[in-house]
């Protein structure tokens, strides 16, 4: 119950923050490679180097050495679990696109849409299970700073490497 209150609170405040400072820059940064990130050769010099996801999680949660190892392991494992789901989701979306292209009607699309929904739910389960594992590995103070990490989990495993934004 307390956790639910807490999670609801962090998500609400996260959205409120997004309202104020949001709008975002459409992910407008350079690609981040590896754990340390890079301010690569193709990055304009005026652009500040952008920390990788792992670096951001580590900073936000102020992880110690052991926790860093644990978090990386949790996210690596989740990425592995997400890979077949991601591939199926891509196929599922291709099937929907092909069905629209073939002029199929709503009744033909329905099972395809439901199948995609199930896969997205599966992916969300992987993301949130990973979040909860991380959450449980934190001390009380750190748990109070999980708002940003909770939001980062959405779509984290959509690419081939959770630490690289696509």
């Amino acid at each position: 119950m307390l956790c639910r209150l807490f999670l609801t609170g962090i998500l609400a405040s996260g959205f409120a923050f997004a309202q104020r400072g949001g709008g975002g820059d459409m992910g407008g940064g350079g690609d981040m490679g590896g754990m340390g990130g890079r301010s690569g050769m193709d990055t304009p010099s005026v652009m500040p180097s952008r920390p990788s996801r792992f670096d951001r999680i580590s900073q936000v949660l102020k992880l110690n050495k052991d926790q860093k190892k644990d978090v990386k392991s949790i996210l690596d494992q989740a990425q592995k679990a997400a890979t077949p789901v991601r591939d199926q989701l891509a196929k599922s979306r291709l099937a929907i696109g092909d069905a629209v292209q073939a002029g199929k009607g709503e009744s033909d699309l329905k099972p395809l849409v439901e199948s995609a929904g199930a896969l997205e739910s599966q992916m969300a389960g992987i993301e949130l299970n990973a979040f909860v594992k991380i959450y449980k590995d934190l001390d009380k103070d750190q748990q109070g700073n999980t708002r940003a990490v909770f939001q980062m989990m959405k779509g984290m495993f959509n690419g081939k490497n959770w630490n690289v934004e696509e």
Partner: peptide, 12 residues
Amino acid sequence: GGGREGRERGRQ
């Protein structure tokens, strides 16, 4: 919001 990750960066 046009860049979830962008918001994360801004927040931090």
